Simulated scan of single mutants.
Amino acid sequence: MIHNKINYKINGSGITQIISPYTNTYFDWNNIIKGYENEDMFRLYISNNKAIILPKRFFKSKEDIMAFKQLISANTDKVKLRDQYFTSLFFLSSKD
């Protein structure tokens, strides 16, 4: 079985899945129909049976995870995050 490395570019516009220099798939935040944060991963569903799975170990730091959660909160209300109250407080206090 051949495994390709998949990279993700995530910003306020959406999520780009980069499979190779020639193969990219773009998902606008509006494409996400539901999503969940688990202890070890994020599951962002683009259909009832297809999801973007982002293990938390793929992020470089807890700050990167918090920044991702902030992007989710700012761009869609369809993803259920853990500690959403803490996420808001973290970003409010970090702007000082």
Rank of each mutant, 00 (worst) to 15 (best):
Y8P: 00
H3L: 12
M41I: 06
E63S: 15
A74Y: 10
K5V: 14
D40A: 10
W29T: 01
P21L: 08
V79P: 03
D40F: 12
I33V: 12
Q70R: 08
S94M: 08
L54K: 02
I10K: 05
F91R: 04
F58M: 14
K5G: 01
N31D: 15
L54D: 05
K69R: 15
D64A: 15
T16K: 14
F86E: 13
E37L: 05
K60R: 13
F86L: 12
N30C: 05
G35V: 06
K78Y: 00
K60F: 01
A74C: 10
L92H: 03
D28L: 06
D28F: 04
N7T: 08
D96F: 01
S93L: 15
F59N: 10
D40L: 14
Q70M: 13
I10G: 04
Y22P: 00
L44R: 06
N11L: 01
Y22N: 14
N48S: 06
N49G: 08
V79T: 12
Q70E: 14
G12E: 13
Y8N: 02
F91Y: 08
I18R: 04
N49M: 04
I15Y: 00
Y45N: 02
K62R: 11
Y8S: 03
T76F: 07
Q84E: 13
D96C: 03
G14H: 03
G35D: 06
F42L: 03
N49P: 02
Q70H: 12
D28K: 11
N24W: 00
S20L: 04
F68W: 09
N24P: 00
I19T: 11
Q84P: 04
K69F: 04
D64R: 09
S61P: 05
Y36N: 11
N11I: 05
W29I: 13
I18H: 00
N75P: 03
I19K: 15
G14L: 11
L44E: 08
D83M: 02
A74W: 02
S73L: 15
S13I: 11
I18C: 07
S94P: 00
S20A: 02
M1H: 10
